[in-house]
Each structure stands twice: as structure tokens, then as C-alpha cells.
């Protein structure tokens, strides 16, 4: 066989294995496919997905095209957790042992979908809910959500003479889910795939509601070069802004601690959404990192 044929065979084989297929329409540098693929290829084909209206809907399933390698259902924006609840209940009744996974963005999770998510956790559905957090309503044109970080420019937290970007810090949703009794809660980063995969594997072993919060650096919304996605993700972790932890049956554990914290400025200045920040504002963010780590380290080993 000639080399081209072998290449094609190799590609077909690879295509079959990927449970989120190439040919999706994500922006260059968008990490959503990395996140979805990491989750699905860790869980395998025995998985059913519910996904909310979001960038993921738009990039995965524009009729008549499709990137899903597992059964998947989209309904609306705020009801991903409720759809997943119904799927899980039906699968249970059918006697099928399958993984049920919900994917939604931060707007569909932190804001408009929070009630449905809380209901799903309350009722104890055996669902893994994964939020990919691009810290904005990216799909509608980068509007502010309650996951948008302090100081960030978005189209609805603009940088004006009076107000300088987003006024609030990110909602601590993972901790909220743990407080409500989700069996497994974790944060993850696309810059640390072994950690991310292990967390997905651990979640799959546990019966009950599971929640993984993945930071999703968005070149389009955060205004950085699309070749830098993984670098930005990595800096979010190395500066301590994005803390990798897990809460397994209520027990808190930091899963990665940078040996030496990089200054937050290194992370912020890669992104034009932060370019307006004053030294004072950057210091405020740096202080917040210290406070957060002090809190998280205090939680180490604690049962929430």
C-alpha cells in the first residue's frame, strides 16, 4: 500500500475512535473540543450526552452536520441538567448502565441553568455535569456572566470612564455544588490533561450527581492569539488564579499546587480583555489569589 492509503486508513481509524469528531466549527484555538473529547474518550461509547444551547451546540450540530460520536440531545439553554435528569431516570428504568453526561457553558450553568442544576443535584441523579467556563456569554458576543472574573472587559461590562470592566469576582460554583451534596466535585484545566482525565475517571466510578468545572480560555472573547490557548490555560493555573482541586464525597483536596506562583500580571497581560487594568486593580486580583489559596489550603483534608 502506498503511503497516502496508509495515512487515510490511519485517519479513518482515528476518526472512529474520537467521540467528538473533527469537522466541528469551533473557532481556531477554541478548547471546547478538547474538553468534550477528553470527557467522552475517557468515558467511552457507553455514554449519552445532554448539551445546552451554547457555543458547543453551534459548533457540534449545525443541521445536517454533526460532530457527536455518542447519542446526544439538545433542548434549550437553561435546562441541560433537567434533560440529563430525565435521560438518567429513563435509562435507569430501562435497566441500562450508561454514563449520562451534561455539557453546558458558564452562562447556562452559573446563571440561567443554576436552578435546574441544583434540582438535579438535590434529586441525586447519577449524572456527570461538566461546565466549560469561557467566563462570558461567548456565543452571543461575549456578554458578562456570573463566571466573568473581576476587571474583565466584556460587551456588557465595558471599560468606561466610570466603570472599569466587570465589578465582581467569579461565583464559587464548585464549592456551592459541594455544599449541596454533589458526590464528586472537581475543577480542571486543559493544560493538565492527566489531572482532568483522572477526575473524569473518578467521577465515572461514583454513583450520584458529579460536577466538573473546566476553565475554557476563549481566544475570541478573551482576546488572545489563538495559538496561545494552552499557554493561557497553563498560566491560569501557575498564577494560582485557577485552582485545581477535587471534593470527593465532601472531602477537599488540592490536586496541583504550583511550585512557585507566577504573578497574575503574566496571565492578565496576555489577554486584551484585561489590558485596561490599573496597577491597583491588578494588585487587587493578586490579593484575591492569596486569599483564595489561604481558604483552599485551609480546606485541605476538610469534609465539606
Amino acid at each position: 500500500m502506498d503511503r497516502v492509503k496508509i495515512e487515510v486508513m490511519h485517519m479513518n481509524e482515528r476518526y472512529e475512535k474520537l467521540l467528538f469528531k473533527p469537522g466541528h466549527t469551533a473557532c481556531a484555538g477554541c478548547p471546547i473540543p478538547i474538553i468534550v473529547r477528553t470527557v467522552l474518550n475517557t468515558l467511552g461509547k457507553n455514554t449519552i450526552v445532554a448539551f445546552g444551547t451554547s457555543c458547543l451546540e453551534i459548533i457540534s450540530s449545525q443541521y445536517p452536520y454533526n460532530a457527536w460520536g455518542v447519542p446526544a440531545m439538545h433542548s434549550a439553554f437553561e435546562n441541560t441538567a433537567a434533560i440529563a435528569s430525565g435521560i438518567e431516570a429513563a435509562q435507569k428504568k430501562l435497566g441500562n448502565k450508561v454514563n449520562v453526561v451534561a455539557f453546558a457553558g458558564d452562562g447556562g450553568t452559573f446563571d440561567i441553568g443554576l436552578q435546574a442544576l441544583s434540582g438535579m443535584v438535590d434529586r441525586g441523579h447519577n449524572v456527570l455535569y461538566v461546565v466549560y467556563d469561557n467566563e462570558s456569554y461567548a456565543n452571543t458576543g461575549i456578554q458578562r456572566s456570573s463566571a466573568t472574573p473581576f476587571g474583565a472587559w466584556t460587551t456588557t461590562s465595558p471599560v468606561g470612564k466610570k466603570i472599569h470592566g466587570n465589578k465582581t469576582f467569579k461565583k464559587p460554583l464548585a464549592l456551592m455544588m459541594a455544599a449541596q451534596g454533589a458526590k464528586y466535585v472537581a475543577t480542571a484545566s486543559i493544560s493538565n490533561l492527566p489531572d482532568f482525565k483522572r477526575k473524569v475517571q473518578r467521577a465515572a466510578e461514583i454513583e450520584g450527581p458529579k460536577f466538573i468545572h473546566v476553565l475554557n480560555p476563549c481566544p475570541t472573547g478573551w482576546k488572545f492569539d489563538s495559538s496561545l490557548t494552552v499557554d493561557v490555560a497553563k498560566l491560569s493555573v501557575e498564577t494560582g488564579l485557577w485552582v485545581l482541586f477535587e471534593i470527593d464525597h465532601g472531602k477537599f483536596r488540592i490536586t496541583y499546587k504550583p511550585k512557585e506562583f507566577k504573578p497574575v500580571r503574566d496571565y492578565l497581560m496576555l489577554q486584551r480583555r484585561f489590558k485596561h487594568l490599573t496597577d491597583e486593580e491588578i494588585n487587587k486580583i493578586q490579593e484575591r489569589v492569596k486569599e483564595d489559596w489561604s481558604m483552599y489550603e485551609g480546606l485541605e483534608g476538610v469534609k465539606i
Binding site: A82, A84, S85, G86, I87, A89, A90, K93
Partner: peptide, 28 residues
Amino acid sequence: LDAEYLNVESEHSAMSATMGAQACGVRA
């Protein structure tokens, strides 16, 4: 009645969970 009864937190979720279940090929 051999069914899962879900005490959902809103009618929005009632209809959503119903459609999620029905999509699995059962009556909901």
C-alpha cells in the same frame, strides 16, 4: 406503577425532564 417519579424544581424542568426521558424511547 413502575415508574421514576421526579419531584422537579419547576415546570420548566418538569417538561425538560419529561422530554429527556421520552427521547430515550419510553413514555414520560
